[in-house]
Nucleic acid binder design. Structure first.
Lengths: 142, 142
DNA sequence: CAGCATCCCGTTTGATACTG
DNA sequence: CAGTATCAAACGGGATGCTG
């Protein structure tokens, strides 16, 4: 992977350029799609919960993502399944039993997200500061 | 940073857990917020274009993000500015001249996104395959 | 317990026209 | 050229009730 601390910003730009060029027009949509799905209210929580627990049932996920409705949970689950991030296993039993697991792709997402999380944590304060300054600037006018 | 290739999935999970715990309730919202903004149709393209070109004017951005409307470009720009990712520089000239530049925070985003892009590139085919299989499975059922 | 169908709302996105 | 205002469409998200 990329030892980010050891490369210059120009290097980053070059890599970013290369990465974006490697993605064709269609893949560019895919890129945003991934972000959009990840930006959904529950998708990330599902992937994370599944990553931590390994396998979870519908109700268990509903409990861990406290606040989610069945509708949205099912929706998110389907989306994630369609994206190949999770696997749905229907046991076909009389008391319905269905559980979900992360695929290799899903684990890859978790891994790929890590640097972003550490970045968010590291810059959470900066975000708030920027936002506050922007909000206050509305008065003084620029 | 994290030499991802050299750590196990369990390690990733542990780190992910730590990362999620490090984010408080409020910060958790921030996390999704970042993803949501990044998931916007144009935000990512703007950050990338700015990262590559350094400084761009409104019209130049509109050209590079071909397909964007003035409305959405301005909106995305404002959002990005509010998030502290870009800086707006109004030259206050008679033929209006305004240009935008990435902040350190914006460059950080670009850096943090890199692993995710490489992952998307590496797994673009897997995404399509998964989606296709999911779509076809609708017939066979079970 | 798992999941689907229906109705409903707010936000995002976009096409068009207008201002300085 | 940069930005705003308005109107309309698309989508995400949610509450409720029903099925197997």
């Amino acid at each position: 992977m990329i030892p980010i601390d050891e490369i210059s910003f120009d290097e980053v730009i070059a890599r970013s350029q290369a990465a974006c060029e490697a993605l064709s027009d269609e893949d560019d949509g895919l890129k945003r799609e991934v972000l959009a799905h990840a930006g959904n209210r529950w998708s990330l929580g599902i992937v994370h919960a599944l990553g931590v627990s390994g396998t979870l049932r519908h109700a268990e996920l509903a409990r861990q993502l406290d606040g989610v409705t069945q509708r949205m949970l099912t929706r998110s689950l389907r989306q994630l399944e369609r994206d190949g991030l999770i696997v749905r296993h229907d046991h076909r039993e009389v008391p319905p039993r269905v559980d979900y697991t992360l695929t290799a792709l899903g684990r890859g997402l978790l891994i790929g997200m890590m640097p972003l999380w550490t970045w968010v944590i590291d810059n959470a304060a900066a975000f708030r500061t920027a936002r506050t300054r922007f909000d206050q600037r509305g008065d003084g006018g620029g």
